[in-house]
Computed example of a mutant assay.
Amino acid sequence: MKHLKKVVVVALVMSVLLPLGAQKSEAASKYVDLEIQWADGRINHVETLHKDGVTYGSFFSLGIKAGLEWEMEDDNTAVLKNSEKHIVVHMGSSIAEVDGQKVDMGSKPVRYISHLYVPIKFLASAFDGEVAHQDPKTNKVTVTGVSNYTDTFYGSNMGYIYVIHVAKGDLEITNASTGQKSLIPLGIKDMNVNTHDLKINFKRSAQNLLIVIIEHTNRKTEDYDLYTLVFKNKGLVRKSIAHGITGQYEILNEDSNIQLIDDNSIRIIEDGSGKVLEVLPR
């Protein structure tokens, strides 16, 4: 669901013709290489615009890579936002707003071949990074320390949408047909998307129990916290939380029983019934 959402948004950004025709630049422009070194370890190389001595970055494209949503509030106001960050730029003005504070970008936004561009120095700073190097011969720009502001993680299975909001760390489940929601407390701590990964995966047992597996991984140490939920007939029957796991952990046994690990023990769960068959020390 998360990846599908991003694909759809990127496709819209690439295809939409923004209603900013009056601001279209006719001045000599060229594309140069932009290297973005993210605080979460990613490195992107993209073509970016160099015009009249100023290097610009694509406002919406880079915002999406930073985990932000985009919108046009009106014909002249473009916004990147989520619960963590809010950036507003206005066509015809060099004054932008970042998290409620006015910032002089140094140059006005530029619309060029259906993209909206703003000065890369401003955009890097708005994303907590900086322009570290610019080659005077090629104009290649290197930006470092750019933050990821992803605030929501998604998964979907059999007509249900599973969402974890970074600010809360709990699991919200929505019936896609009825819109009915339920909340399962997880209390995931330290959800810093620049240092940790979060994955939501699904497995089905032989007797059709649904197992929701959530891994919250520290990229530096590679250990992870494991949150395992077992559902029978769409109702939660078992939950376990284990911190600091290293290496691969198998949840489904060869005999189809389920292993639920927590900080102190391993429970062997009977497939089909969800009953606890045995409790082993961890």
Rank of each mutant, 00 (worst) to 15 (best):
K2F: 12
H3C: 10
K5W: 11
L12Q: 15
M14G: 14
L17K: 13
G21T: 12
A22Q: 11
A27F: 12
A28E: 15
Y31W: 06
Y31T: 10
L34A: 14
W38P: 01
I43G: 07
I43P: 05
H45V: 13
L49N: 04
L49V: 06
D52A: 15
S58T: 09
S61Y: 15
A66M: 10
G67T: 00
L68I: 06
E69V: 07
W70F: 13
E73Q: 15
N76C: 00
T77N: 01
V79H: 00
N82Q: 01
S83V: 08
S83K: 08
K85E: 03
K85F: 05
H86C: 03
V89Q: 06
G92N: 07
S93E: 15
A96N: 09
E97K: 14
V98K: 08
V98Y: 07
S107N: 15
S107W: 08
S107K: 15
P109N: 08
R111M: 10
Y112W: 11
S114Q: 09
H115F: 15
L116F: 05
K121W: 06
G129A: 15
G129N: 13
A132W: 01
Q134G: 03
D135F: 00
P136C: 04
T138H: 05
T138Q: 08
N139G: 02
V146T: 10
D151A: 11
F153T: 01
Y154A: 06
I164N: 10
H165G: 02
H165P: 00
V166F: 04
V166P: 00
A167E: 14
G169C: 00
T178S: 14
G179T: 10
Q180K: 14
S182V: 00
L183A: 04
I184E: 06
I184W: 00
P185D: 05
P185F: 00
G187L: 04
I188K: 01
N192R: 00
V193Q: 08
N194M: 01
T195Y: 06
K199H: 11
I200W: 04
F202T: 08
Q207G: 07
Q207Y: 11
N208W: 12
I211D: 02
I213K: 06
I214P: 01
T217M: 12
R219G: 06
D223T: 12
Y224D: 02
V230S: 05
V230F: 07
K234C: 04
K234L: 07
K234S: 14
L236E: 01
I241A: 04
A242H: 04
Q248V: 10
E250L: 09
L252Q: 05
E254S: 12
E254D: 15
N257R: 09
I258S: 04
D263Q: 06
S265M: 13
I266E: 03
I268N: 14
D271K: 01
G272P: 05
V276A: 02
E278H: 10
L280R: 14
P281C: 05
R282M: 09
